[in-house]
Amino acid sequence: MLQYAAIVLIMLGLYGILTQRNVIKIILSLNIMEIGLNLFIISVGYVTDGIAPIMTTNHNTNSLIYVDPLPQALVLTAIVIGVGTTALGLAIAKNIYSKYGTFELDEMEEE
């Protein structure tokens, strides 16, 4: 089931954050977790046999069964926010690299 897959992805991301000591890998883990989360959000709105919530010439009335459009709108926001955090994380990672010469948290001197 899709929701379970989403939760597995979230847990995978968490596992990565718990075990990885490399800055880039931690950011990747965060991304995996966010993807899982986004998948979960989408899955919440799914209706069996529902169609995409877009009116077209083929589905030209709102009395059809659509899937829930709200989670889709939310997920859009969540994705963009995820992009923003990732970009920032990578920028910080680059700064960390130029300061310590490594991405490994364990190899840095304690501040």
């Binding site: 963009v80 926010i81 992009v83 923003g84 955090t85 970009a87 920032l88 990578l90 920028a91 910080i92 680059k94 700064n95």
Partner: peptide
């Protein structure tokens, strides 16, 4: 959010 993180990237780098 996107704006401020782009700005942040510029600031940081």
């Amino acid at each position: 959010v996107l704006f401020v993180s782009a700005l942040g990237v510029a600031l940081l780098l």
